[in-house]
Write a protein that binds this DNA or RNA. Structure first.
Lengths: 145, 145
DNA sequence: GTTGAAAATGTTGGCCA
DNA sequence: TGGCCAACATTTTCAAC
């Protein structure tokens, strides 16, 4: 990956709606050259998508937490991700190696909702949970190239 | 927050470059009505930004890990986030309540790089670390409205 | 990579319910 | 207030070089 492509990635990571014209200006390319570069980055799967980021508070999801889970009855066939999928409060799911099997990031309205969510997770998934509350987010998902 | 705005948020969360014309088609609004809604959502801070998502593997960051950190010398003045900021491998930083003080998400090239990163974090920040390796990511940062 | 021109989209102001 | 329309500016797209 070369200089110009990295620069384009940095620009689009910072502003996903930047126009090809502006990308061209920032990289010294013509509009269509910039567009071709971006299209190639998309086709190669380097850029996997464009997404608006939404303030969780605006959706009444003021409480964020990480939940480490460990299955109570270890089984060969692990379909936990599929069974987590219908639970809307689970925002991210990581399969991990360490003290637990999965690490979940969840977002709920308030502590009482977290209590309910934990009960649901424990019963529906048959797992033990260890919860860590998020107090604040100094930074998140930054892209430093 | 009403139905139409939620729909717009869902659309832009899924495709941050969707045109106002398309947003209008999906919501039964005219182009300019859709545009006004989006502008208002941006001004109210509900939409905090638009970002391209980049495949970490394309940037040779194949290894993701979570690192829980605990300061060795607890002090009143905590400037850890500022001191983490210049470390590019640290992608996210959460201040948490639980067994540790901060939870970091990091991305590195390979296990050896993680070893170096852990050494850097421990010495520069004067903290104890507990690392959890990410094996796979069933889903991440999904927005379910 | 570049240029250029056509098609699509973004933008603004005025008008209407 | 919130939405529509219509005219104008900008961007996207795609060809040929």
């Amino acid at each position: 990956m070369e200089e110009t492509d990295r620069k384009i990635l940095a620009l689009l990571a910072a502003d996903g709606r930047m126009s090809y014209t502006d990308i061209g200006k920032h990289t010294g390319l013509s509009t269509s050259a910039a567009q071709q570069r971006v299209r190639r980055l998309e086709q190669r799967g380097v850029i996997t998508g464009y997404h608006a980021r939404i303030d969780p508070a605006a959706l009444d999801r003021t409480l964020t937490a990480f939940i480490a889970i460990r299955p109570l009855n270890p089984s060969l066939h692990d379909d936990l991700p599929e069974r987590m999928s219908p639970i809307p409060e689970i925002v991210s799911c990581y399969s991990v190696a360490g003290d637990s099997s999965y690490l979940l990031k969840v977002q709920v309205e308030h502590p009482l909702a977290l209590e309910g969510l934990l009960a649901r997770i424990r019963t529906e998934l048959a797992v033990a949970t260890l919860t860590t509350l998020v107090l604040s987010v100094p930074f998140e998902d930054r892209v430093v190239l």
